[in-house]
């Protein structure tokens, strides 16, 4: 037995809402952004903190997944080194379309303070990036704001158009 009986005649008739396909799909996509845990360095700790008690990322529908096949957004948290670069590209290729990338922290954006031989000077040399977060390390609030911005971006997209190939560099 249903707990709540719906009165079809009252309150606006049938339980039907009209919307466009774009809106309903983007609503679903933007509110269940499953993130690939790409913790590389210090920012990974802040990424964990945003998933933990106080900042509670589950509210935004962001659930961290360990497998690229289940993830929609890759949060690159930390320094990308030259030795690791091929792995980030491989995991990015394994993610299913549509996919987005958040580059978290100065090191992922530009190499940051590590202007050395071993550091990739910006993760956008290897994979296309949608959103850059400044800070070393960015606070969990910053990451939350980034996710909200990404949701805004997703809601503007049209699902019938093929995703534009994102520019590298």
């Amino acid at each position: 037995m249903a707990q709540h009986q719906v009165n079809y005649a009252a309150s606006g008739g049938l339980p039907v809402a009209l919307t466009t396909v774009d809106k309903i799909v983007n609503w679903g996509r933007s509110n269940s952004l499953w993130a690939l845990t790409y913790g590389l360095a210090c920012c990974a700790i802040e990424m964990m903190a945003s998933g933990a008690s106080r900042y509670d990322f589950d509210r935004f529908g962001v659930i961290f997944r360990a497998s690229p096949r289940q993830a929609d957004v890759m949060i690159v948290a930390g320094t990308l080194t030259k030795k690791h670069a091929e792995f980030i590209r491989r995991l990015y290729d394994q993610m299913a379309e549509p996919k987005w990338v958040i580059s978290m922290g100065s090191c992922a954006n530009t190499g940051g303070m590590f202007n050395t031989y071993a550091t990739v000077q910006g993760v956008d040399r290897v994979i296309p990036v949608d959103l850059y977060l400044p800070g070393c390390a960015p606070r969990p609030e910053t990451l939350q704001y980034a996710v909200m911005l990404l949701q805004k971006k997703i809601r503007k997209q049209s699902i019938f158009q093929k995703q534009k190939p994102k520019r590298l560099v």
Partner: peptide, 11 residues
């Protein structure tokens, strides 16, 4: 410090 040519184009 910034690496030689091989290092800069490694990735």
């Amino acid at each position: 410090l910034h690496g030689d040519e091989a290092a800069q184009w490694y990735e």
